[in-house]
Design a binder for these strands. Structure first.
Lengths: 226, 226
DNA sequence: CTCTTTTGTGAACAGATCAAAAAAAATCCC
DNA sequence: GGGATTTTTTTTGATCTGTTCACAAAAGAG
């Protein structure tokens, strides 16, 4: 994730810290608010908040009010933290436009997973997961590569190798460099292994196999017809 | 949702298609009408229409007239699509018995959420959020999963695993990721335990077990036939 | 043109990975 | 506590992949 901003609103600082720690590890930028009013302030002051995590129980302005306020102006995804098993809350919330519920106590991992799922669903972080060049498309998330729309059946290493080529278009790559990047750096084997993988890749890519060019005495280069 | 019928009335076919696409994904059965008269015809011909989405601006019979006509005989929920910020419309509409307004342009997600909210409110919907794909429907609230309408008898973990797959369609999921999400993150055991659960899931899903695909050297991926 | 070096290709081996089944452990329910 | 169900672990066999090797083909050097 590319440092998307997430606003965490909870009156317990311990809870905020817990959530923040886990989200930070995933490279999210976490903003904190201790009550509803503070949350609204932050929300309007900061731009481009990607998601809000909102505790229901708070002094002054509770979670529902904050949600209602925000929904007047924004469609930002909202996750509500509720007390366990309070289904009335959920019914109320869906009308308000809450995207997801997590009941306390929860596992932080679950929280992170939900956050990522929502961001994916709302299409905020899919960007950057797709590479393409000359009719070849690589979807890293799906671990799928296609040529002119039809999927190629690539093995794990083949997929990684092709991805590496796409990420370094137009650059001549020595075998050593490829080994260090696609294989583990402590790999001992023969550099000629690459040749075999290139061979298989080229054949699976059909005509477009030509895009992987041989750089004599050097290695390989991926390049779409100039 | 169990294929509840929704009638979409709008003179722009592009708009109808947009709405239809999103509602279809949620397993609603969508009927289309291009103008008010057609809408009335369909409404009387078809039985058990659960909800009507009505554009205000239409040739021949506009949305208000359609609404007035329908309210003579039926209390079916009606959602009106209005131009942004036209408050007079809303005042007029409430007298006519409009249940909800959505102003154009709107996010399809919001539309779907409102539709579900209204159906829930009017008790036509068994409630809960529902995931579905390729004939497989998961009702989280009811903790029930069905294939082509007939329920599968899943154990708790199997249900959670299938839910996780549905929530991450098209994404290759490593075993580690699955463990962290479906199992507690402090789970120590063998990642192979997933294999066993996948096996059982696949067998209980019958033909559609194929949707859970093996991504060699990686993990699994849920995908409806491309 | 000939020789040397580098790359392409097909086959074969070894090890990794997965599916299926069965056994063991944990959990639930009465 | 005992039996049934669910979950996890283990085992076994089958399949796929990565790697290597040997040789053929191609490229460059002199």
């Amino acid at each position: 994730m590319d440092g998307l901003k997430i606003l965490v609103v909870d009156d317990e600082s311990r809870m905020r810290k817990l959530v923040k720690d886990f989200l930070s590890k995933k490279n999210f930028q976490v903003l904190e608010a201790g009550d509803g009013e503070e949350a609204m302030d932050l929300f309007y002051k900061e731009k481009e908040i990607a998601l809000i995590i909102l505790d229901v129980m708070m002094p002054k302005m509770d979670g529902w009010e904050v949600c209602r306020e925000i929904r007047k102006n924004s469609k930002v995804p909202i996750i509500m933290l509720t007390a366990r098993g309070d289904e009335r809350d959920e019914l109320l919330g869906f009308d308000l436009g809450v995207d997801e519920y997590i009941s306390k106590p929860f596992s932080p991992k679950i929280l992170v997973a939900r956050v990522e799922a929502i961001l994916r669903r709302t299409g905020q972080d899919t960007a950057g997961d797709v590479l393409s060049a000359g009719g070849i498309v690589i979807d890293k998330a799906a671990h799928l590569a296609t040529v002119d729309g039809s999927p190629m059946e690539l093995s794990f290493k083949e997929f990684e190798l092709l991805t590496y080529f796409l990420e370094n278009q137009g650059i001549a790559l020595s075998r050593e460099k490829i080994l260090n990047s696609v294989w583990n750096y402590d790999y001992f084997g023969d550099a000629r292994t690459i040749d075999t993988h290139v061979k298989k890749l080229r054949s699976k890519m059909g005509e477009k196999g030509e895009y992987i060019r041989t750089v004599w005495g050097m290695g390989y280069k991926f390049e779409v017809d100039a």
